[in-house]
């Protein structure tokens, strides 16, 4: 019985997997990607604010990402956003303990290329 359930669960997950259709929104990127990987207590938390950035809540992420250079919305310059560069470079790459998957980084870039929806909302 347990084998059937396990097999069905794996099959369900496999059959329903898609490439990367997650919402490229600030709340999603913050809560699903930045907060668990970057907003840890000792790093970019509201308490610690390493380098002046906090990503542990949507409001804190918005305030941080509005700082100059973090998000570059100029057409063709999106990949020069500091947020994207620190996630992809080999030297001093973030997060330091555990790199992000390529698809998380791609979603963040997509959000920037889409105009960083939600960045200027209160």
């Amino acid at each position: 019985m347990y084998r059937f359930v396990l097999g069905a669960a794996i099959a369900w997950m496999g059959c329903n997997q898609t490439d990367n259709n997650r919402p490229a929104t600030l709340p999603y990127i913050t809560e699903a990607i930045l907060q668990p990987s970057c907003g840890q207590y000792d790093c970019h938390s509201s308490f610690r604010r390493e380098k002046g950035y906090a990503f542990d809540t949507v409001a804190a992420a918005r305030a941080s990402l509005l700082q100059p250079g973090l998000v570059n919305l100029s057409p063709g310059e999106e990949q020069n956003s500091l947020l994207y560069r620190v996630l992809t470079r080999n030297y001093r790459r973030m997060p330091y303990d555990s790199p992000l998957p390529d698809k998380d980084i791609a979603l963040i870039l997509q959000w920037i290329q889409d105009g960083a929806q939600g960045l200027n909302e209160p």
């Binding site: 997950m13 997997q17 990367n20 259709n21 997650r22 998380d104």
Partner: peptide, 11 residues
């Protein structure tokens, strides 16, 4: 697995 609906998001 960060999101079971998306491929290659597991570690």
């Amino acid at each position: 697995n960060e999101n079971v609906r998306i491929t290659e998001l597991h570690r």
